[in-house]
Computed example of a mutant assay.
Amino acid sequence: MKPNLQSKFFAEFLGTMVLVLMGCGSAVIAGSNGTTGVGLLGIAFAFGLSVVAMAYAIGHISGCHINPAITIGMVVAGRMTGKEAISYIIAQVLGAIAGAAILLLIASGKQDYNVITNGLGQNGYAEASPAHYSLLAGFIAETIFTFIFLLVIFGATSTKNIHGGFAGLSIGLSLVLIHIVGIPVTGVSVNPARSIGPALFAGAAAISQLWLFISAPVLGSILSAVTWRYILEKE
C-alpha cells in the first residue's frame, strides 16, 4: 500500500527536523576546534550522515527530500506534481523550525551560550560568512553546489541506475563533499528550509540574508533539473 500524503508530510517534517538538529547541532554543540570539537570535517559528515540515516528511515515513504530545492527540482524534472510539492515544502520548513527550536533548547543548557553571540548554525555571506566570503561568492557557491547535489540525486534515483539501493549513501556522501568545500564560504545551505529554521532564532542579521539561501539553491535546483531532463537523460 502506498503512503498517503499525510504520511509523506510527517516523514518530511521529521526528516528535516533531524537534518537541522544534527547538522546544525554538530556546529553549535560539537564544532569548536577545542579538544572535544569535531571541526569542519566532523560538521560536514554530520550533515551527510543525517541525510543517509533519514534516506533509509523515510525514503520509502516520501522519497526523503527534506529540502525544498530538491522538491522543486523534482517538479521541474517531471517526477512530482506541484500540488504534492507544496505539501512537502510546508512540512520541510516546519520541520526545520522545529529542529532549530530543539537545538536552541539544548544549546541554552550551557551557561555561557548566547544565540546572538554563538549562533545556531545559520548561513551567511560577507561579514556573516565563516571566512568572510562576499555576497557574489556565496551566491555562486550555493547555486553551483545545489546544481551538483541535485545531479547526484537525479542520477542516484534514476530508474536506469542499477545501483539504486545505494542512493542514500551516495547522496549523503555528496553532501559531505559539498560541506567540506563550502563551509568556509557560507556555512553551506543548498537547502532553503535548513537556512530558514536557524535564521528565525538567530536574529535580524541572519533573517536579512535569507533571500540568498532561498533563491540560489532554488536556481541551482532548476538548472540541474533542466540539465538532467533535457540533456543528460533525454530519450
Rank of each mutant, 00 (worst) to 15 (best):
Q122P: 03
E84I: 07
V115P: 05
K110M: 09
S170V: 15
N114A: 13
E127N: 15
S87G: 15
Q92V: 11
S170H: 06
G119R: 08
G168H: 06
A77F: 06
G109M: 11
T81N: 08
L177E: 00
I180S: 02
S174C: 14
V185Y: 01
L173W: 03
Q92W: 10
M80T: 05
S129W: 07
Y88C: 06
G172F: 06
I148S: 01
Y125W: 14
N118V: 03
I153R: 04
I97A: 10
K110L: 04
A128F: 11
Q92A: 07
L135G: 02
F139C: 11
I97N: 05
G155H: 10
K83M: 02
S108Y: 01
F145S: 06
K160P: 00
G82C: 05
G172A: 04
Y88E: 11
L120H: 11
H163A: 15
N118P: 08
I178A: 11
K110P: 00
R79W: 01
I102Y: 03
A96Y: 03
T157Q: 07
P184C: 08
A131S: 14
G168L: 01
I140K: 04
I178H: 08
G168Y: 04
F147V: 03
A98I: 10
Q92R: 12
T143H: 04
Y125K: 05
I86D: 01
G182S: 15
L151W: 09
G182I: 09
F149G: 05
G168T: 08
F139A: 14
I90L: 13
A91I: 13
V115S: 05
P184S: 04
S87H: 13
I178M: 07
L175I: 14
E84Y: 01
G182P: 05
T143V: 13
L169R: 07
A167E: 01
T81S: 15
F154W: 06
N123W: 00
M80P: 03
G78S: 04
I144H: 06
F149P: 11
L105M: 15
T186Y: 03
G138D: 03
S108A: 14
G99I: 13
G165L: 02
G99W: 09
G138R: 05
T157G: 00
N123P: 08
G172D: 08
S174L: 00
A101V: 13
L177D: 01
I153P: 09
I171D: 02
A167M: 07
G109P: 06
Q122D: 09
E142P: 10
A156G: 07
T117E: 14
Y125T: 13
L120T: 11
G168C: 07
G164W: 00
T117W: 00
L150N: 12
P184G: 10
L103G: 09
A100L: 09
R79H: 12
L105Q: 12
K83P: 01
Q111V: 12
Q122T: 12
A156T: 10
A77G: 10
A156R: 12
S129V: 06
G121E: 01
S158P: 12
I162K: 15
I116N: 11
E127P: 00
A100C: 08
T186I: 07
G138P: 09
Q92E: 14
L169H: 02
A131E: 08
F145W: 13
L103D: 06
L105F: 14
A156Q: 07
S134C: 05
G82F: 10
Q92H: 11
T159R: 15
N118A: 09
I171W: 05
T146G: 06
L94S: 07
G78A: 07
V152Q: 07
